[in-house]
Every structure is written in C-alpha cells, then in structure tokens.
Design a protein around this nucleic acid. Structure first.
Length: 297
DNA sequence: TACTATGATTAATT
DNA sequence: AATTAATCATAGTA
C-alpha cells in the first residue's frame, strides 16, 4: 500500500524547482469572455474553492505573514505519524520552500487583482464611450462587471489549486525523510559511539541523556533514538565486526572518564560509566530475579 | 555498477 | 511508549 505511494514519490523526483504553473493564465481569452453568453457555466464549486482556501490557510500560505508557517508544518508532521515531530534542520528547509511558494502565490494573487481592476475600469471606459452612441442600462454594466469578476476569480482558483499542489508535493517530499538521508558528521558519530561503548552493558540512554546527546550532536532526540536502536541491533547481530571499534572507544573513554566525572549538578546519580573493556552487552533484563517467566497476575 | 554503511520507517513485541 | 527486527532508500566506496 505505502509501497505504491512511495514509488510514486520516488519517480516524481523532479521537484527541484517548485515553480507554480506560470501566470500566463492571464493570457487566456479574457477578452473573449465578454462575448460569451453563458458565463454561468463556470462550474461554481464553492465547496472546492473553500477547500482550497482552507488548505492554503492551514499550510500557512495565505495566512498572516509569518508564524503560521511553523505551526502548519508541525501539524503536517504530526498528521503524518509523529516520528519526525521535531526536526529543526529539515524544518527550516521546509519553511524556506514554503515561504517561497507563499511569496509566489501572493505576487500572483496581487497581479490578478490588479489586472482585474484594470480590466474592469477599462471596460467601464468602453461602456461609457458607447453610452454616447447607444443607451446602456446600469443593469448591463453590472452584468459586465460581474462576468469579469467571475472570470478572474476562476483564474484565481486555478492559482490556488496550483499552489495547493505545490504545497502537497513539498510536504510529501519533506515527510519522506529517507529521500535526503545524510550521514551524521564525524563528531556526532564519535559522541554517540562514545556513549554507546561506555555504556555497553546497558546502552539505553534515558530521555535526558538522549536530549543531551542530541544537543551535543546537533541532531534531534528521535535521531538519537534511531541511532541507538540501529546500533544496538547491529552490534548484537555481529559483535565481531564491531570489536575493533569497541576497543578503540573503550580505550578512549577510559582516559576521558578519569578526568571528566560530573559536570552537571543533577540530584540523580550519574550513569556511572562502567568501563566495559570487553564486556558483551547481553540484554540485561532481570525484571523478576528468579522467575524465568514473569506473567503479570 | 555492485556492494556496504547508515539513517529512517514499519510491524511486532513487551 | 519504548524497543526489536526487518526493511527501505540513500550515501559512500571499491
């Protein structure tokens, strides 16, 4: 199910330029409109227009200047699953692109509005001229104006639709974080490895520890969790392969541990880095001492 | 290009 | 809710 979706996204990789379909909608036969009798058949899906408006508003494209954007992005991330709830690096990228879209949208919208006004006054002038040669009822003028406005608002809707599309594409790309996976920098990996190997007998950092690591590595807490999850399983699967690494970090942190003992003044006892020279991490879960099976009740 | 390393995601498990 | 195990998709490399 998600495979189809993903493969779809994969192939739709041409999103390097998030260009809205150009504003040449204006070039369409605006002039011909006036001669068209049945301007009524401009399918008037107010519902759809509302939907578009709502979405643009929700995504922070049509809302107030700034501030709505991040909220919308957070909402979007949360809606997707919540795993990528707090990315700041990617977030800024997302926001930058979103504001790009937003800017285009606003410029275009303004252009349309201006064109609409210009066109209206132009037609009015024409009518006024004609009124010298033939009588023109106010009703007719009204009708003309309403036709013009209807036409322009339909063009506006297309703009809104295109913008929505662009936002959707941007969002799906943003959400599929695997696409632009980056390796952590050397320093971050060092820090993580250092922690891992110095807590080899129980490589499960607490929430606070994760936060600290995240800060040190300039990555998110969920990334820290991911890293430890991956590391644990991969280490366990092939301890031999990691032996070298383990020794290296064990030696390194042994030196470190001598000088650095406690830098924060937490009430809690620090994690007491057990120097696990060659210790093999074996799932230290001893919930109920003697019992092999610990059924609740 | 094929292979490995690695970060992210997902379903299952507890 | 946190973790495991499997898997995906890309980055880095031979």
């Amino acid at each position: 199910m998600s495979c189809e979706l993903r493969s779809g996204l994969r192939s739709a990789a041409a999103f390097d330029r998030l260009v809205l379909p150009s504003a040449n909608l204006m070039g369409r036969d605006v002039w011909g409109v006036l001669s068209i009798r049945g301007a009524q058949e401009e399918e008037p899906p107010d519902a759809q227009l509302m939907r578009l408006d709502n979405m643009l508003l929700a995504e922070g494209v049509s809302g107030p200047e700034k501030g709505g954007g991040s909220a919308a992005a957070a909402a979007a991330a949360a809606a997707s699953g919540g795993a990528g709830a707090d990315n700041s690096a990617e977030h800024s990228d997302y926001r930058a692109k979103l504001s790009q879209i937003r800017q285009i949208y606003h410029t275009e919208l303004e252009k349309y509005e201006q064109a609409c006004n210009e066109f209206t006054t132009h037609v009015m002038n024409l009518l006024r001229e004609q009124s010298r040669t033939r009588p023109i009822s106010p009703k007719e003028i009204e009708r003309m104006v309403s036709i013009i406005h209807r036409k322009f608002s339909s063009i506006q809707m297309q703009l809104k639709q295109s913008t929505c599309e662009a936002v959707m594409i941007l969002r799906s790309r943003f959400l599929d974080a695997r696409r632009k996976r980056r390796n952590f920098n050397k320093q971050a990996t060092e820090i993580l490895n250092e922690y891992f190997y110095s807590h080899l007998s129980n490589p499960y950092p607490s929430e606070e520890a994760k936060e600290e690591l995240a800060k040190k590595c300039s990555i998110t807490v969920s990334q820290v969790s991911n890293w430890f999850g991956n590391k644990r399983i991969r280490y366990k699967k092939n301890i031999g392969k990691f032996q070298e690494e383990a020794n290296m970090y064990a030696a390194r942190t042994a030196v470190n541990a001598a000088s650095v003992s406690a830098h924060g003044s937490q009430a809690n006892s620090p994690s007491t880095p057990n120097s696990a020279g060659g210790q093999i991490y074996t799932h230290v879960s001893q919930p109920c001492g003697n019992h092999t099976l610990c059924h609740s009740t």
